[in-house]
Structures are given as structure tokens and as C-alpha cells.
Write a protein that binds this DNA or RNA. Structure first.
Lengths: 194, 194
DNA sequence: ATCGCTGGGTACCGATCGGTACGCAGGGGA
DNA sequence: TCCCCTGCGTACCGATCGGTACCCAGCGAT
């Protein structure tokens, strides 16, 4: 969740923070530029001096909200060194905690891709690029495990995470978090024994 | 996917079909009323004579696109009578086929709930009601199985299905369909043996 | 004191949004 | 033949959208 910082004026920084919050809470299309400006205490031109367009702002939002796979990987390796299965469970448990937090409204990237169905749109392209990195994270975590088809397992875990993220919004965060950890354990165990 | 039909004028019926297709392909917010009218070959007032508002049209869309759990259940029971595990696998396989179809762009209900974050909005409420029925379908399919906690298993399967639906759009439909069936088998097996 | 430059807000733009007032064409009953 | 009623499209409404032309305040340097 590390944000790719770039130099911005103080007013531009406030715009950035407001926009991220509103994009996530209300959706990108529903968050109007005028309201972002108002809530940031700036005029609209300030937004366009720091960002090329609303789409540009949305693009920055998507790229910033993406997970930072490398950082997450390092952190998991630091917490559970030399124990790949524990590292994997650690990451899954972290994700389960994240989706349980109040105010969680699904993965920002998935939501953005729903709002931008056109696959040629830059925002959509950014989502796919970032999500590919996400899948790589799982692949790296799974590779050290003694399983026959690590890539399939990684894909399955990714699928579980996305499913938990979605069901959290529609059903229950507690159930989703618990089911995510439980299901991941079962799938991993199943892969380990054959 | 059975559509709750109601009496509509022929022109209204064309509007309905066009709207469903556009809502799904482009998203509800992105599909303008004027464009729906034009593509249906009618004027805008025709839309408002058949539907109370755009939100009303969206509400009808959501309710129509919901699965019909009872029908699906009957069909699975007919195909694999007296074999509950096979019934369950049948439903999962049907879903895997569905998400593999070209033009699949995720679950219409999930997409709608992303577009309507406000939980008090009628469209959002309808999504949650319909999705609860969906979960009930899995619960009914799982209950006959000799497992200790059927509800947990049902929730997990629901989560897997939602995950497959999401990853289909971002990664690969083929991989998602295969991973869904594989993961479901593994989770079910895991539940059956303990 | 005066200048120019930087960084900000006011007020406005055309386009498009969802929604509607109104008028017209056509068919059945008298 | 006249009438009314139903069902539809044209043309328009105010609101809001993303985006911009313009102006002004505050600053350091001369």
C-alpha cells in the first residue's frame, strides 16, 4: 500500500489525499472534481496544475494503491525467515486483517477495473499491470514450497484473496477473513500432500 | 439468470434488452439514457413510461440478472439425482463454463455494488438480497454432504466463485475456470475427510 | 517603491447528464 | 365523419460534469 510519492505543492498534496479517500469511498466516477477541490480547500485549477486530468488523477490513485510486492515479501521473510509456509500464511493473515478493517470497500484496483470496462483505457491497463505484480508476489511465496505446480497454487490463492475481498462487502467481513485463512490452509495442505 | 418478466410495451421490451446489455458491457453509470433510447430506436420518454427512473431501470436489471437459485438447484438435482457431491460439482462446473464465455465481464451484481457504494441505495440493497439467495443455494447444496460445518464450506465456495469471477476479468478466463474447479474439489475433499 | 514571477482562486465555458412538457399520428366507437 | 384516447417522438429543461481563461496576492531582487 506504499504510495509512489512525487513532488507536489502543499495544496496539491491535500488534493491527492482527498482524492484518494473519495475515490475509494465513493468510486472514481462518482467523485466530482469540484467536490474534491472543495473538500481539499482549494480551487479546481489547483487540481489541474498538479494532475493532467481527472483520468490522470485516477491513474495516480490506482498506481499508488497497488500493493508493493517487494516490500511485502521482504517483511514476510523478515517475520518468518527460513519458513516458507509460515511466510505464506503470514501474508494471507495480513490480508485477512486488512479486509476486516472498518471502511474496507474492496480492492481499489478491482473496483477501478469495474468502473473502467474499456481494456484500452490507461487506468484499466494500470490495474492489470499492478495486479500482475500481485500474482507474482504469490508465485514467489509459493515457489519455495515442495509442491508440484506452484503457479496453479499461486493463482488459486490470488483467487481466494479476491473472493474474500468481494464477499467482505456483500456478506460479512468476519466470515470472509476467517474463510480466507481456512480455505488457504486447506488448499495449501492439499497441494503439499500431492 | 431467469429474468423476472413483467408486462411491457414492445418498445419498452426493446429498451429493456438494450439497457441490460449496455449496463453489463459499459457499466450502469456509463450507460446514458439517451444512448439507451437511441440504440433501442425509441425516444427517451418511452423509457420513462416503462420505468420510473434510471435507478428503477437499474434496479430491474439487478433483480433480473440475479441467479434463480431454486431453478438451478432443481436442474442440478435432476442431472445428478441422489448424488449430492456430484450436484455440487455440477453447479461449480456450470459456473466455470459461464465465466469462460467470451464477453464475460464479472458478476453483474458485484459490478453494480461497486458502482453503488451507498448501502442505503435500493440497487445496493437489491444486490445484497439477491446475493444472500446465492449463498443459500450453496448452503442447500452442501447440507446433504457429510461434513461438520456445512455453512463454512458453503461460504468458502461462494468466495471461490466470486474470486474466479473477478480474476477472470483481470487475468485469464481459462486459468480462472480451471482453478475454480480445482480449488473447489480440494476444499470439498478437505471438508469431507475431517 | 517597483518590477516580474510564482501559485493561488473566481467565474465561466461547452458538453452531457437525467428527466419532462407538449404535440402529433393512428385506431376503435358512435 | 367526428371524437377521444392511447402511445409515441421532438425539443427542451435545469443541474452538473470536466476543464479553462483570467485575475490577483505575495514574494525576492533591483
Amino acid at each position: 500500500m506504499a504510495e509512489a510519492e512525487q513532488q507536489r505543492s502543499p495544496a496539491g498534496q491535500r488534493v491527492w489525499e482527498t482524492a484518494c479517500e473519495m475515490f475509494y469511498r465513493e468510486g472514481i466516477h462518482s467523485a466530482g472534481v469540484a467536490e474534491i477541490a472543495e473538500r481539499s480547500g482549494v480551487g479546481k485549477p489547483t487540481i489541474y496544475r498538479n494532475f493532467a486530468s481527472k483520468d490522470g488523477l485516477a491513474l495516480a490513485y490506482v498506481n499508488a494503491k497497488a500493493v508493493s510486492p517487494r516490500a511485502w515479501l521482504e517483511s514476510a521473510r523478515a517475520a518468518c525467515s527460513d519458513d516458507p509456509p509460515a511466510q505464506l500464511r503470514q501474508v494471507i493473515a495480513d490480508i485477512a486483517d486488512q479486509i476486516s478493517e472498518p471502511g474496507f470497500r474492496g480492492c481499489p484496483l478491482v473496483n477501478a477495473s469495474v468502473e473502467f470496462p474499456d481494456r484500452d483505457h490507461p487506468v484499466r491497463a494500470a490495474v492489470e499491470a499492478r495486479k500482475a505484480e500481485y500474482l507474482d508476489l504469490f508465485t514467489e511465496l509459493v515457489t519455495p514450497l515442495p509442491v508440484r505446480d506452484p503457479e496453479s497454487l499461486a493463482y488459486m490463492l490470488q483467487m481466494l484473496v479476491e473472493g474474500a475481498s468481494v464477499t467482505t462487502q456483500i456478506y460479512s467481513p468476519e466470515k470472509s477473513a476467517a474463510a480466507l485463512k481456512d480455505a488457504a490452509d486447506r488448499v495449501i495442505a492439499s497441494y503439499m500432500e500431492r
